[in-house]
């Protein structure tokens, strides 16, 4: 077992884990933060994207112990059902989801895109930047609209 301490959504957590525990597993099974999804488990689909020290990463392809000392933000950490993050609100308003399984990763990646590329995002940029997030329902069209709208809404946050 190995000890790991990290800040998750603003709260410090310390745990003893088997070193092979993936960050996604740690969040879901140890902290019961089940908003982070595991779709493919092979770093293709992006349903598991969270932010580690402010950067998007695939939590199914990162060891929890490797995040010792880091600050982790999950989908639970960005908004509440009553006060959605502007990007979450944009996905709702633009029908940016159908089954919703990929949505947590889409939103965490979308926020990362805004952090890196700013608030005025064209369609091409959004589609390129969402390369690591797969949706099997929507055909992406409304996701792209949602990200563009969410990016603008984040400017007024």
């Amino acid at each position: 077992m190995a000890s790991v301490t990290m800040i998750v959504n603003g709260k410090e957590v310390t745990a003893n884990v088997d070193p092979r525990t993936l960050l996604a597993q740690f969040l879901r099974e140890h902290l019961h933060l089940t908003g982070t999804h595991v779709g493919c488990d092979t770093s293709q689909c992006g349903a598991c994207v969270v932010h580690v020290d402010g950067r998007s990463i695939k939590s199914c392809t990162t060891l929890a112990v490797a995040c010792d000392g880091a600050s982790v933000t999950t989908i639970e950490g960005i908004g509440t059902p009553d006060h959605l993050h502007p990007m979450q609100a944009a996905f709702r308003e633009n029908h940016g989801l159908q089954c919703g399984f990929c949505t947590p990763g889409m939103i965490m990646s979308a926020i990362d895109i805004v952090n890196r590329k700013g608030h005025q995002l064209d369609e091409h940029t959004i589609r390129e930047e969402l390369e690591g997030n797969i949706c099997r329902c929507t055909g992406y069209h409304n996701i792209v609209k949602a990200v563009a709208a969410g990016a603008q809404a984040m400017a007024g946050k």
Binding site: S56, I57, T62, S109, D112, E131, G132, N133
Partner: peptide
Amino acid sequence: IGDPAVRNR
């Protein structure tokens, strides 16, 4: 290389 999340690691 890869995608943005992969490039961050």
